[in-house]
Design a protein around this nucleic acid. Structure first.
Length: 523
RNA sequence: GGCGCUUUCGUCUAGCGGCUAGGACACAUGCCUCUCACGCAUGGAACACGGGUUCGAUUCCCGUAGGCGCUACCA
């Protein structure tokens, strides 16, 4: 890169039509990584040129989401900067000026065709497209006398400004990921650039004008924009900005985990994974969509996982901090084909980041979990005992050597793994493989004997139990642990039995054993 | 329908003319063991198809088929 080359400036420009889609998060992430790597700037622009689709709260949601994810912007809506305003609805005058420039240069024209008239034409003509072949048939400033055009505008008729595309030219888009993409201008239609009804431009015009004015050097966006990239190239040229036109990079799309098509909100709800970074409450329908944050994902895990969906550093490294990703990121190493969204692997990434955290970091989430299960009534009233229990339980999932042993992808996974610490079994599944194998005809009797032995233990610590129980095990020849486990846990899981009994205490241990013997004898 | 992009294990992918086609997730098995899990070890699993180019194609080119996207006064 030569030193006179411009400073890298990229942007993420969502439309505030709802919550930010996870695919959008990835696009933003790639822009962020690219900007940081090149010491450049990332701009946050709001593309609200479709007033009919505006959703209140969406903009705030998006900002909060990036804040949570740790993706930082250098300028834009809510971040400031001297290329503003960054909300397109506040840039009307700017766009008008540039639309006029195109009109004056005869590179655009005014069209009065109503939606109904257009619909009719589509009926009449097969594969109708508003272009060089058909614009002579329509009501526009190319076919109408100048006075008529002025009169129509004067009288307040609604109109649009269309881009006049010259047919028959191969337009080249030099894509950083896909190389040279060629589309013939004849298949492009005379896109609407501006609508008189709301005095706003459409995406295409606003996009080009803003990227130019904001000195954007690289446009990194989803593949859905590839077909309109030639149009954008033509627009840059029409304005005479071809020399400063940004480089393009069209990212592959995120696809459904199963079946066909691109990832949609519904898939997430159906398969049980979020498609939004944060939980979203739809202001209109009241519908709630789950979010990664609320599901217990760590933002670093989400970023790491997402980054690898469509890009890789070229080696086998998968776990990367944001700093490493910034260092390693490379547009030319992005894949070209769509990636199915693998939520199972997303959970694995979360597991990896979760187990790196200190135990205390789990406590707030764990509290929520216990509250939900009715174990803790109010955090304020939380007693020392519960606090101690929690740490003990977390420690159990922690294991030796400070290496998390349990398969915990989310803090919420802790409950099924550890509920027996807090609540006694209330029922036993006779058909359960473990129960079947370890609770035989004679087991109840053995457990009664065992209870008698335990009753004599005064010091119920692990060591205290062992001094009494081990000799008994030795001389009776019994192997009481699995059945004991059924009594205390209700299933084939949990920590060392002495440990568990010590944790529960003598009274609770005997109570659970008594209950199990009675229940299993009567079933 | 038209146009464009794309095609390596079930999934994410490495590979940039010559490899026993590598890794990760998931799955299975074994070891460990009072259970589950962890850990360790092992295993099954892929170059869509057909033509070229070449001494040689997973790799380059062209078709076909599949997938995806776009085809609005939405972004």
């Amino acid at each position: 890169m030569s030193c006179e080359e411009k400073k890298v400036r990229v942007r993420f420009a969502p439309s505030p039509t709802g919550p930010l889609h996870i695919g959008g998060v990835r696009t933003a992430l790639y822009n962020y990584l690219f900007a940081r790597q090149h010491g450049g700037e990332l701009i946050f622009r709001i593309e609200d040129t479709d007033s009919t689709r505006f959703v209140p709260g969406a903009e705030e949601y998006i900002i909060e989401a990036f804040n949570w994810l740790g993706i930082k912007f250098d300028e834009g809506v809510s971040f400031g900067g001297n290329h503003g305003p960054y909300r397109q609805s506040e840039r009307r005058d700017i766009y008008k000026r540039y639309v006029q420039q195109l009109l004056d240069a005869d590179k655009a024209y005014i069209a009065f065709d109503t939606p109904e008239e257009l619909e009719q034409k589509r009926q009449e003509i097969e594969n109708f497209q508003y272009d060089a072949r058909t614009r002579g048939l329509m009501r526009n400033s190319l076919t109408l006398p100048k006075e008529e055009v002025n009169r129509l505008i004067q009288e307040g008729n609604q109109y649009v400004v269309r881009f006049k595309i010259e047919p028959g030219e191969d337009v080249h888009v030099d894509d950083l990921i896909r190389g040279d993409v060629v589309i013939n201008s004849s298949i492009l239609d005379d896109k609407v650039l501006f609508k008189s009804a709301d005095q706003l431009p459409t995406y295409h015009l606003a996009n080009i004008v803003d990227d130019h004015l904001m000195e954007v050097t690289h446009v990194i966006r989803g593949e859905e924009w590839l077909p309109s990239a030639p149009l954008h190239v033509l627009l840059y040229r029409a304005f005479g900005w071809q020399d400063t036109m940004p480089r393009f990079a069209h990212l592959p799309l995120l696809l459904k985990p199963v079946g066909n098509g691109k990832l949609s909100k519904r898939d997430g709800d159906k398969l049980g994974f979020p498609v939004f970074p944060l939980e979203w409450h739809d202001p209109k329908s009241g519908e709630v969509s789950s979010g990664y944050r609320e599901k217990g994902y760590l933002p670093q895990a989400v970023c790491n996982f997402l980054a690898l969906l469509g890009w890789n550093p070229g080696n086998d490294q998968e776990l990367m901090s944001m700093e490493e990703m910034i260092r390693l990121f490379d547009l030319s190493k992005c894949s070209k084909n769509g990636a199915k969204f693998d939520y199972v692997k997303a959970a694995w990434f979360n597991h990896q980041y979760l187990i790196q955290q200190p135990d205390e970091a789990w406590v707030p989430e764990f509290d929520k979990l216990l509250k939900g299960e009715g174990i803790i009534s109010t955090p304020e009233k939380e007693v020392e005992v519960v606090k101690m229990m929690k740490l003990k339980v977390i420690e159990y999932t922690d294991g030796e050597g400070n290496k998390k042993k349990r398969n915990v992808s989310f803090v919420s996974d802790l409950w099924p793994l550890t509920k027996f610490f807090f609540v006694a079994p209330t029922a036993f599944d006779r058909e359960d493989k473990f129960v079947k194998k370890n609770w035989k005809e004679t087991t109840a009797d053995e457990m009664r004997q065992f209870m008698d032995v335990l009753a004599t233990v005064d010091d119920f610590s692990v060591e205290g139990q062992k001094t009494i129980v081990d000799p008994w095990v030795e001389q009776s020849g019994l192997r009481p642990w699995n059945a004991w486990r059924i009594c205390l846990v209700g299933a084939g899981q949990g920590p060392d039995m002495y440990e568990l009994a010590a944790f529960l205490g003598k009274e609770e241990t005997l109570r659970r054993m008594q209950f199990a013997i009675e229940t299993l004898c009567n079933s």
